[in-house]
């Protein structure tokens, strides 16, 4: 969404406000989006601060206190070898969230470059790339990621690569569509006809408008990526013991479900809350950037 059109509706403060200020103004208007942002800030803080805020070493065994129920000493209880589940959930943020961010960075990076290239070159190359992407998009992506992860060997890096690869075509489509439509936009043509420097056109008109939908998609994708990576870990194709990773913790905790409910519950809750955070923020950003959604 551009500043000008928002101003026309009188929904925005004075023109002098910077892009960031405007973004912040819009964010504050949506309580759910702010909740999402708040969750993400907390999760990122936990990621960074895990070594200082975790009460125990996440890998330290304590065979005397195995499968202890939640208490003041162990907020989330302990696991089958006496490790503190609370500390492992905090440390797990590092693994799970980093993997989610990395998946999106890889698929967005490759997808955007391929898509923009395809859209700008056009012609046969474009057709060939897009037909290929259509075929890849027709694959059942989770099953493909499973098969790829199994083929590469079950570990977290391979699971991450597998998920990233099957997500690339989504960004290819998105970026290509942007490249195609922006080339012929009246305001781009107008700027050109006024003799605006190319760099300025790129910076002021092309980049902000091309990146917005891609960034929105990426934000929404982080939640999905975290969910998918933890799902692969759950079926044994991702993080392996003793790594503190949320999906793998739920998988081990599954064996203790009926007697020690807390074991699988808390790591799973961490996945849910984190995914909610990214999805709320992504939704909010999409509403802001999609003029059709505004005011709804």
């Amino acid at each position: 969404m551009s500043l000008e059109s928002a101003e026309a509706e009188g929904t925005t403060p004075a023109r002098s406000s910077s892009g960031v200020g405007y973004l912040w103004y819009q964010l504050r208007r949506s309580p759910l989006t702010m909740v999402g942002l708040g969750i993400i800030v907390v999760v990122l803080f936990i990621m960074v601060a895990a070594p200082w805020i975790a009460p125990y070493n996440p890998d330290k065994l304590d065979l005397l206190h195995r499968l202890a129920a939640p208490s003041l000493a162990h907020f989330f209880g302990t696991d089958e070898v006496g490790r503190d589940i609370f500390s492992r959930v905090l440390w797990g943020a590092r693994t799970s969230v980093t993997v989610g961010l990395a998946i999106v960075a890889i698929s967005m990076g490759f997808g955007t470059v391929i898509g923009a290239f395809s859209g700008l070159v056009g012609g046969r190359v474009d057709t060939l790339i897009m037909r290929f992407m259509d075929v890849v998009l027709s694959f059942p992506s989770f099953v493909m990621a499973m098969a790829l992860a199994a083929a590469l060997g079950p570990n977290l890096i391979n699971a991450m690569l597998a998920i990233a690869v099957v997500r690339i075509p989504f960004y290819v489509r998105l970026a290509r569509g942007q490249a195609l439509s922006l080339r012929s936009k009246p305001y781009v043509k107008a700027a050109m006809s006024f003799g605006a420097p190319r760099v300025q056109i790129m910076r002021r008109h092309i980049m902000p408008n091309a990146m917005a939908p891609i960034i929105v998609q990426a934000t929404l994708d982080i939640g999905l990526a975290i969910l998918t990576a933890s799902a692969l870990s759950f079926i044994g194709l991702g993080a392996q013991q003793p790594t503190a990773e949320w999906g793998a913790m739920v998988a081990t905790g599954r064996d203790y479900l009926l007697d020690q409910w807390w074991y699988p519950t808390f790591p799973g809750l961490a996945i849910l809350i984190t995914a909610v955070g990214f999805n709320l923020l992504g939704d909010g950003l999409r509403d802001m950037f999609d003029p059709r959604m505004r005011g709804r």
Partner: peptide
Amino acid sequence: VTGISTPAFWLGLLLIY
């Protein structure tokens, strides 16, 4: 939002419990 953010395998475990 909770629906699309819930790990299905985890929800299944909670329901079983």
